[in-house]
Design a protein around this nucleic acid. Structure first.
Length: 566
RNA sequence: GCACUCAUAGCUCAGCUGGAUAGAGCAUCGCCCUUCUAAGGCGAGGGUCUUAGGUUCGAAUCCUAAUGGGUGUACCA
């Protein structure tokens, strides 16, 4: 339910009836329960424009507010706040209707768009490490969210599969193969190191590696075949991680760097034609106003750079994929790069003016000492290892709990362990740096995925115990049920906000609030105990069912599984 | 040097398109299990929202400056 926009309409109507002009009506959440459910604070501003007393205007508006439906009560408070209470019968009616809705009351966006979400982007030469975690899960959440709200989402996994290092890697791969050693690439990191050793010790090998770089780029079949088999193997590793992570990326979503290779000269041509780029020190450069240094799009030796590839990718996404919103879920350290590339793309007409280009930046992964993870030191934690350890720890934590068969234990441990890792990351506002901490990540206390999963499991437990049909209407019987119902209906507004701002943590905050409220409700209002009237029992069961459904849907958008029993 | 970004409780973080007494979790100290899963609930203590100015009826939120972190800055991605 789009509560805020519904309330805006009601306020707008009241303002019209009171003959007051207002251009934008912003409804806020009430800051405290005693101030109602929502509030409208715009009167003070209007009063200033009209040079009138704000409380006077507020009273006039309040008189004209329709309190026969959604709203039960309004009052003027403080200097001119208008506090709004939602009607219990209305809440009961709408929540009851929502019970039958698979989308738990969430509608679709008014103007669906085609959206490209670029995320994950692993380097094929290396194993995925914890640094790839954020892009992968933030991007995946956003893609799922946009899709749920009705946008047409095209996922793009811009993998790094092109560059000089691949000459060395495929030369080494070939050497391994010809030795009759056809074992799989089990450990990419090790493979890279071994190849590097060969490169350094053998002049002959090094030359072959360099030769292979040229050969791949000029389309030599044999080399391309080797290269392709290497990429396939490497991609296989990534897919293993995606599977563990419960992330929705497939081979169809891969659009590698190499894909844009043959389009790069055309990009340079366009920039030259439009006089956007100039030659400086032998390199093709774009000088943007306000930047002291140019963006180099072609090296003096003729080679292309990542800005060039990104321009080609932007062109492709805007004109071939025809996206209207393009989101790059990439480390915040690349903010300047994207700002520049976006500016050039629009200047050169590679992307139409009306296409929204967004860099969804996120903070750096820091170690406990507050230093960024280094890519080349031995201490980098592989993502696979991290995820496996999370599951092991989760399993250890729940092994004495309730009765679980071995099979159940494994699947529950997986949901909890992986969920904990993802939730810990997603619940932090993405722009802040993120301190990687095993203990915190795997802690099962406080604002964690386990708290949500636990609440869900409790609800399922009640339903198992009830073990009969649940029917009947939701009745709002007290304050806590009122607040719970309002919170349940707030889900859509929350998702819309998360979608516009591209902030997954908006969803986790909401879920946390919802679950906290449910826990209070659960403590205060017994459901299955003796002496509870059937009508009340049914209503409370229905409220629990709806809460469970919202938790499940919310976690599903975050890519986190629920469990029936913990 | 220049640019960007951040600074909120002992710790980890919300809140920031200006609104009422700045909120959570962890940690600390109490209370609640013969009662639907106590991995829960209730309560207490803990704050010059880095500092100094400014804008205004009103500033953690907007502007300016300072201080202290982080990041980026011509042929890596």
């Amino acid at each position: 339910m789009k509560i805020k926009s519904e309330l805006s309409k009601i306020i707008e109507k009241a303002l019209n009836s009171a003959n007051i002009q207002a251009n934008e009506i912003v409804i806020s959440d009430a800051t405290k329960p005693e101030f109602g459910d929502y509030q409208f604070n715009g009167v003070m501003r209007l009063a200033k424009e009209l040079k009138r007393n704000p409380r006077e205007i507020a009273s006039e508006v309040v008189e004209h507010i329709d309190t026969t439906g959604m709203v039960s009560k309004v009052e003027v408070a403080g200097p001119g706040f208008i506090n709004i209470w939602l009607n219990n019968e209305w809440l009961a009616k709408v929540t009851t209707e929502t019970l039958d809705d698979k989308r738990v009351g969430v509608g679709f966006v008014e103007n669906p768009k085609r959206v490209v979400v670029d995320y994950s982007g692993p380097n094929m030469a290396k194993q995925m490490h914890v640094g790839h975690l954020r892009s992968t899960i933030i991007g995946d959440t956003l893609a799922t969210l946009f899709e749920f709200l009705g946008d047409e989402v095209i996922r793009q996994n811009h993998i790094g599969d092109w560059g000089t290092q691949f000459g060395m890697l495929i030369a080494y791969l070939e050497e391994q193969n010809t030795d009759g050693n056809t074992q799989e690439l089990k450990d990419l990191e090790q493979f890279y190191k071994d190849a590097k050793v060969r490169f350094d010790e053998s002049e002959e090998f090094a030359n072959k590696a360099r030769e292979y770089v040229v050969k791949i780029q000029s389309g030599d079949e044999h080399c391309l075949e080797l290269w392709q088999s290497f990429i396939n193997a490497s991609l296989g590793h990534c897919e293993e991680v995606y599977k563990k992570l419960n992330v929705n990326l497939t081979r169809n979503d891969v659009r590698a760097e190499s894909f844009y290779n043959d389009q790069l000269p055309k990009i340079i041509e366009t920039l030259k034609e439009k006089n956007i780029s100039t030659t400086s020190n032998g390199a093709e450069c774009v000088f943007l106003e306000g930047d002291e240094n140019p963006i180099i799009v072609q090296k003096s030796d003729g080679g292309f750079l990542y800005a060039t590839t990104d321009l080609a990718a932007l062109y492709f996404r805007a004109n071939v994929l025809k996206a209207k919103r393009i989101c790059y879920v990439v480390d915040a350290r690349q903010a300047q790069h994207f700002k520049q590339v976006f500016a050039i793309a629009k200047m050169a007409g590679l992307v139409d003016e009306d296409v929204i280009l967004e860099h969804i930046g996120f903070g750096t992964m820091m170690d406990k000492g507050g230093k960024p993870f280094k890519t080349r030191d031995g201490g980098v934690i592989k993502l696979v290892d991290l995820l496996d350890e999370a599951v092991v720890r989760a399993k250890d934590a729940i092994k004495d709990r309730d009765v679980h068969s071995e099979e159940e234990l494994n699947s529950v441990a997986r949901a909890i362990g992986i969920g904990a890792v993802k939730y810990a990351d997603l619940s932090i506002s993405r722009e802040s740096n993120y301190i990687f901490n095993w203990d915190k990540m795997l802690s099962f206390e406080g604002n964690t995925s386990l708290y949500m999963q636990y609440a869900y499991a409790r609800i399922q437990s009640i339903l198992r115990k009830h073990n009969a049909e649940v029917s009947g209407k939701i009745i709002i019987g007290d304050e806590i049920e009122h607040r719970l119902a309002v919170m349940l209906l707030k889900f859509e507004d929350t998702l819309i906000k998360a979608s516009i701002e591209a902030t997954p943590h908006t969803i986790t905050s909401y879920l946390y609030e919802l679950v906290t409220l449910f826990m209070k409700f659960y403590e205060q209002n017994p459901i299955l105990k003796d002496g509870i009237e059937n009508e009340v029992k049914m209503s409370r069961l229905q409220l629990s069912i709806l809460t469970g459904a919202v938790i499940k849907k919310g976690l599903e958008i975050l890519g986190i599984e629920v469990v029936e029993k913990i």
